[in-house]
Nucleic acid binder design. Structure first.
Lengths: 106, 106
DNA sequence: TAATCATATTAGTGAATACTAATATGAAAT
DNA sequence: ATTTCATATTAGTATTCACTAATATGATTA
Protein backbone atom coordinates (compact mmCIF):
# COMPACT_ATOMS: atom_id res chain seq x y z
CA UNK A 1 0.00 0.00 0.00
CA UNK A 2 2.15 2.43 -1.50
CA UNK A 3 3.27 5.77 -0.74
CA UNK A 4 3.49 6.86 -4.32
CA UNK A 5 5.99 9.31 -5.66
CA UNK A 6 4.04 12.41 -4.73
CA UNK A 7 3.52 11.22 -1.17
CA UNK A 8 7.23 10.79 -0.78
CA UNK A 9 7.91 14.11 -2.44
CA UNK A 10 5.52 15.89 -0.09
CA UNK A 11 7.13 14.22 2.88
CA UNK A 12 10.57 15.24 1.70
CA UNK A 13 9.58 18.86 1.22
CA UNK A 14 7.75 18.94 4.54
CA UNK A 15 11.18 18.49 6.06
CA UNK A 16 11.96 22.06 5.06
CA UNK A 17 8.64 23.58 5.96
CA UNK A 18 9.05 24.39 9.62
CA UNK A 19 10.77 27.31 11.24
CA UNK A 20 12.73 25.31 13.77
CA UNK A 21 14.00 22.94 11.11
CA UNK A 22 15.02 25.85 8.91
CA UNK A 23 16.91 27.28 11.86
CA UNK A 24 18.70 23.99 12.31
CA UNK A 25 19.60 23.90 8.64
CA UNK A 26 20.96 27.44 8.77
CA UNK A 27 22.92 26.46 11.82
CA UNK A 28 24.70 23.53 10.19
CA UNK A 29 24.79 24.89 6.66
CA UNK A 30 28.49 25.62 6.77
CA UNK A 31 29.67 22.65 8.72
CA UNK A 32 28.67 19.85 11.03
CA UNK A 33 27.64 20.47 14.61
CA UNK A 34 26.72 18.35 17.57
CA UNK A 35 23.21 18.23 18.95
CA UNK A 36 24.19 20.21 22.01
CA UNK A 37 25.83 22.91 19.92
CA UNK A 38 22.64 23.22 17.91
CA UNK A 39 20.49 23.26 21.03
CA UNK A 40 22.60 26.01 22.47
CA UNK A 41 22.77 28.17 19.37
CA UNK A 42 19.06 27.95 18.84
CA UNK A 43 18.29 28.37 22.52
CA UNK A 44 16.05 25.40 22.07
CA UNK A 45 14.83 22.43 24.03
CA UNK A 46 16.93 19.28 23.71
CA UNK A 47 14.01 16.94 23.18
CA UNK A 48 12.40 19.15 20.63
CA UNK A 49 15.59 19.66 18.63
CA UNK A 50 16.30 15.97 18.74
CA UNK A 51 12.90 15.21 17.27
CA UNK A 52 13.38 17.74 14.50
CA UNK A 53 16.79 16.25 13.74
CA UNK A 54 15.17 12.84 13.44
CA UNK A 55 12.68 14.34 11.03
CA UNK A 56 15.35 15.98 8.91
CA UNK A 57 17.32 12.76 8.85
CA UNK A 58 14.28 10.72 7.94
CA UNK A 59 13.57 13.13 5.12
CA UNK A 60 17.04 12.60 3.71
CA UNK A 61 18.05 16.18 4.33
CA UNK A 62 20.79 15.72 6.89
CA UNK A 63 23.13 12.96 7.99
CA UNK A 64 24.64 12.21 11.36
CA UNK A 65 27.94 10.65 12.24
CA UNK A 66 28.85 9.47 15.69
CA UNK A 67 32.19 10.28 17.27
CA UNK A 68 32.47 9.11 20.81
CA UNK A 69 29.49 10.32 22.71
CA UNK A 70 28.80 13.12 20.28
CA UNK A 71 26.79 12.98 17.11
CA UNK A 72 27.66 15.43 14.40
CA UNK A 73 24.94 16.46 11.99
CA UNK A 74 25.46 18.08 8.63
CA UNK A 75 23.64 18.64 5.37
CA UNK A 76 23.41 15.46 3.38
CA UNK A 77 25.14 16.91 0.34
CA UNK A 78 25.68 20.00 -1.79
CA UNK A 79 22.34 19.64 -3.53
CA UNK A 80 20.59 20.35 -0.26
CA UNK A 81 22.57 23.53 0.11
CA UNK A 82 21.64 24.50 -3.43
CA UNK A 83 18.05 23.95 -2.56
CA UNK A 84 18.25 26.20 0.46
CA UNK A 85 19.84 28.88 -1.68
CA UNK A 86 17.21 28.56 -4.37
CA UNK A 87 14.53 28.95 -1.72
CA UNK A 88 16.10 32.22 -0.68
CA UNK A 89 16.45 33.40 -4.21
CA UNK A 90 12.82 32.80 -5.09
CA UNK A 91 11.59 34.02 -1.76
CA UNK A 92 13.24 37.37 -2.36
CA UNK A 93 10.81 37.93 -5.18
CA UNK A 94 7.70 37.11 -3.21
CA UNK A 95 8.51 37.74 0.40
CA UNK A 96 6.35 40.78 0.99
CA UNK A 97 3.36 39.18 -0.63
CA UNK A 98 3.75 35.93 1.27
CA UNK A 99 4.16 37.74 4.55
CA UNK A 100 0.88 39.52 4.00
CA UNK A 101 -1.15 36.53 2.95
CA UNK A 102 -3.31 35.30 5.74
CA UNK A 103 -5.44 32.60 4.23
CA UNK A 104 -7.59 31.32 7.04
CA UNK A 105 -6.54 27.83 6.23
CA UNK A 106 -2.84 27.78 5.64
CA UNK B 1 4.37 41.46 15.65
CA UNK B 2 6.42 40.21 13.01
CA UNK B 3 6.69 37.17 11.07
CA UNK B 4 10.42 37.17 10.65
CA UNK B 5 12.24 35.89 7.62
CA UNK B 6 12.23 32.25 8.66
CA UNK B 7 8.51 32.29 9.41
CA UNK B 8 7.85 33.55 5.92
CA UNK B 9 10.28 31.08 4.42
CA UNK B 10 8.59 28.18 6.22
CA UNK B 11 5.21 29.37 5.05
CA UNK B 12 6.46 29.61 1.48
CA UNK B 13 7.89 26.12 1.49
CA UNK B 14 4.82 24.72 3.16
CA UNK B 15 3.06 25.62 -0.05
CA UNK B 16 4.90 22.76 -1.72
CA UNK B 17 4.58 20.26 1.06
CA UNK B 18 1.24 18.66 0.36
CA UNK B 19 0.35 15.96 -2.10
CA UNK B 20 -2.70 17.67 -3.52
CA UNK B 21 -0.81 20.90 -4.06
CA UNK B 22 2.01 19.04 -5.76
CA UNK B 23 -0.56 17.44 -8.03
CA UNK B 24 -1.94 20.85 -8.90
CA UNK B 25 1.55 22.11 -9.67
CA UNK B 26 2.25 19.14 -11.91
CA UNK B 27 -1.03 19.75 -13.59
CA UNK B 28 -0.31 23.37 -14.51
CA UNK B 29 3.44 23.04 -14.90
CA UNK B 30 3.34 23.30 -18.66
CA UNK B 31 0.63 25.89 -19.06
CA UNK B 32 -2.25 27.62 -17.38
CA UNK B 33 -5.49 25.83 -16.63
CA UNK B 34 -8.87 26.79 -15.22
CA UNK B 35 -10.06 25.63 -11.84
CA UNK B 36 -12.56 23.26 -13.37
CA UNK B 37 -9.94 21.73 -15.62
CA UNK B 38 -7.75 21.12 -12.60
CA UNK B 39 -10.64 19.71 -10.59
CA UNK B 40 -11.44 17.33 -13.39
CA UNK B 41 -7.90 16.17 -14.08
CA UNK B 42 -7.27 15.55 -10.41
CA UNK B 43 -10.68 14.00 -9.86
CA UNK B 44 -10.90 16.33 -6.92
CA UNK B 45 -13.47 18.25 -4.99
CA UNK B 46 -14.06 21.82 -6.16
CA UNK B 47 -13.98 23.36 -2.71
CA UNK B 48 -10.88 21.53 -1.70
CA UNK B 49 -8.99 22.40 -4.87
CA UNK B 50 -10.07 26.00 -4.56
CA UNK B 51 -8.66 26.18 -1.07
CA UNK B 52 -5.38 24.68 -2.16
CA UNK B 53 -5.21 27.16 -5.02
CA UNK B 54 -5.70 29.99 -2.54
CA UNK B 55 -2.86 28.56 -0.49
CA UNK B 56 -0.53 28.29 -3.47
CA UNK B 57 -1.39 31.81 -4.51
CA UNK B 58 -0.89 33.17 -1.02
CA UNK B 59 2.48 31.47 -0.92
CA UNK B 60 3.53 33.24 -4.11
CA UNK B 61 3.81 30.00 -6.03
CA UNK B 62 1.08 30.48 -8.61
CA UNK B 63 -0.80 33.38 -10.16
CA UNK B 64 -4.33 33.60 -11.48
CA UNK B 65 -5.75 35.66 -14.26
CA UNK B 66 -9.43 36.10 -14.88
CA UNK B 67 -10.92 35.81 -18.34
CA UNK B 68 -14.66 36.07 -18.36
CA UNK B 69 -16.02 33.66 -15.87
CA UNK B 70 -12.92 31.51 -15.91
CA UNK B 71 -9.81 31.92 -13.88
CA UNK B 72 -6.60 30.58 -15.30
CA UNK B 73 -3.86 29.54 -12.91
CA UNK B 74 -0.23 29.05 -13.77
CA UNK B 75 3.15 28.91 -12.09
CA UNK B 76 4.26 32.31 -11.01
CA UNK B 77 7.49 32.20 -12.99
CA UNK B 78 10.28 30.03 -14.27
CA UNK B 79 12.06 29.95 -10.93
CA UNK B 80 9.18 27.98 -9.50
CA UNK B 81 9.53 25.45 -12.25
CA UNK B 82 13.24 25.22 -11.53
CA UNK B 83 12.42 24.59 -7.94
CA UNK B 84 10.09 21.74 -8.79
CA UNK B 85 12.78 20.23 -10.97
CA UNK B 86 15.41 20.54 -8.29
CA UNK B 87 13.07 18.79 -5.86
CA UNK B 88 12.85 15.89 -8.26
CA UNK B 89 16.54 15.80 -8.82
CA UNK B 90 17.40 15.67 -5.14
CA UNK B 91 14.57 13.34 -4.34
CA UNK B 92 15.93 10.81 -6.81
CA UNK B 93 18.92 10.42 -4.54
CA UNK B 94 16.97 9.87 -1.35
CA UNK B 95 13.60 8.52 -2.39
CA UNK B 96 13.97 4.98 -1.10
CA UNK B 97 15.25 6.12 2.23
CA UNK B 98 12.56 8.74 2.67
CA UNK B 99 9.84 6.30 1.73
CA UNK B 100 11.02 3.94 4.46
CA UNK B 101 11.33 6.48 7.22
CA UNK B 102 8.45 6.31 9.57
CA UNK B 103 9.28 8.64 12.40
CA UNK B 104 6.34 8.48 14.75
CA UNK B 105 6.21 12.21 14.73
CA UNK B 106 6.54 13.40 11.20
C1' DT C 1 -33.85 40.26 -14.32
C1' DA C 2 -33.80 35.46 -13.57
C1' DA C 3 -31.26 31.40 -14.11
C1' DT C 4 -26.89 29.21 -14.72
C1' DC C 5 -22.11 28.45 -14.50
C1' DA C 6 -17.33 29.00 -12.42
C1' DT C 7 -15.13 29.88 -8.43
C1' DA C 8 -14.60 31.33 -3.52
C1' DT C 9 -15.71 31.27 1.29
C1' DT C 10 -17.42 29.50 5.70
C1' DA C 11 -18.22 26.21 9.32
C1' DG C 12 -17.37 22.04 11.33
C1' DT C 13 -14.68 17.81 12.08
C1' DG C 14 -10.93 14.58 12.17
C1' DA C 15 -6.12 13.82 11.39
C1' DA C 16 -1.42 15.28 11.49
C1' DT C 17 2.04 17.79 13.70
C1' DA C 18 4.89 20.56 17.23
C1' DC C 19 5.60 21.22 21.78
C1' DT C 20 6.93 20.08 26.86
C1' DA C 21 8.13 17.04 30.51
C1' DA C 22 9.68 12.74 31.86
C1' DT C 23 12.27 8.74 31.06
C1' DA C 24 15.51 5.65 28.55
C1' DT C 25 19.81 4.45 26.09
C1' DG C 26 24.44 4.19 25.43
C1' DA C 27 29.14 5.92 25.54
C1' DA C 28 32.87 7.97 28.48
C1' DA C 29 34.96 9.15 32.74
C1' DT C 30 35.67 8.30 37.57
C1' DA D 1 30.70 -0.71 38.24
C1' DT D 2 28.80 3.69 39.11
C1' DT D 3 28.15 8.12 37.70
C1' DT D 4 27.93 11.49 34.27
C1' DC D 5 27.18 13.33 29.90
C1' DA D 6 25.05 13.46 25.10
C1' DT D 7 21.31 12.10 22.71
C1' DA D 8 16.92 9.58 21.77
C1' DT D 9 12.35 8.08 22.82
C1' DT D 10 7.76 8.15 24.88
C1' DA D 11 3.42 10.05 26.43
C1' DG D 12 0.31 13.62 26.62
C1' DT D 13 -1.58 17.99 25.06
C1' DA D 14 -2.47 21.91 22.13
C1' DT D 15 -2.21 23.76 17.66
C1' DT D 16 -2.32 23.51 12.84
C1' DC D 17 -3.99 21.72 8.80
C1' DA D 18 -6.87 19.04 5.16
C1' DC D 19 -11.17 17.52 4.19
C1' DT D 20 -16.43 17.68 3.27
C1' DA D 21 -20.77 19.91 2.89
C1' DA D 22 -23.19 23.98 2.50
C1' DT D 23 -23.55 28.58 1.07
C1' DA D 24 -21.99 32.93 -1.16
C1' DT D 25 -20.13 35.79 -4.94
C1' DG D 26 -19.73 37.35 -9.33
C1' DA D 27 -19.78 36.84 -14.24
C1' DT D 28 -22.58 35.14 -18.28
C1' DT D 29 -26.49 33.73 -20.72
C1' DA D 30 -31.44 33.27 -21.53
Amino acid sequence: MGQNYLDVKAKFIRGFSDKTRLQILECIKNGEKTVSQIVEELQGNQSNISQHLACLKGCGIIVGRQEGKYIYYSLRNEKIKEMLELFDEVLNQVQTEVAQCDSHLY
